[in-house]
Amino acid sequence: MKILVCISNVPDTTTKITFTDNNTQFNTAGVQFILNPYDEIALSRAVELAEGGKGTVTVINVGEVSTEPTIRKALAVGADEAVRINAKPHDAYFVAYQIAEYAKDKAFDMILTGRESIDYNGAKVAGMIGELLDIPSVSIIKKLDVDGTTATVDREIESGKEVITIPFPFVAGTAEGVAEWKIPNMRGIMSARTKPLTVVEPKEVKTLSEILSFETPAPRGQVKLVPADDAAKLIDLLHNEARVF
């Protein structure tokens, strides 16, 4: 079983988000970058499925050389090898196109992504790779089991879940529930240093979208506090002032 896990390098969840150049660029100064939490879940499941010689796990990242510490972390968690497409990820289509181009002649059985990246929150890459390779894609999944060459997944829907079977090869976007996060141990960290990390140059691709600027949400006004012994007043305010019910 050959598994490809797409990993993105994102600002740590506690980062204060600011912008420069007249609000057109994300300010990376002093920002700690991490492996996208959902990708960590995908990777953890991939490593579990491949354990005991049942398969191999390749991680792929579209990013500049600055993402290599995150890639090494993925190797420490248990991936066998890594690929970095040497380019700034312009948008989801650019990323999906590079990954599809890399994967198209490598016969991966399963391509996993996170449900979304916590920076641009697009949830787009999985479906785009699926379409580019003309194979099924499911997002968002909360459970992933494999039997032979067929996977069974739980797909999240508004009213609950669908249990779906998918034959290899396919793409899936994973969320919590698929696996527990794996914390790399010392052996993993040591061996990550010597695992192969291949750098591949990007392919030319059409630009379809452009981020023009960023805005920060309008601050909420001062909180209106209601005394605890007059809790009924809160219901009155929500009904008559905020008019939410």
Binding site: P11, I118, D119, Y120, T207, L208, S209, F214, E215
Partner: peptide, 17 residues
């Protein structure tokens, strides 16, 4: 306009296609 950075900001995205 769309929400980015998990609700901490918005991005104005142009579709050029």
């Amino acid at each position: 306009k769309k929400s980015v950075f998990s609700g901490k900001a918005f991005a104005v995205v142009e579709l050029t296609s």
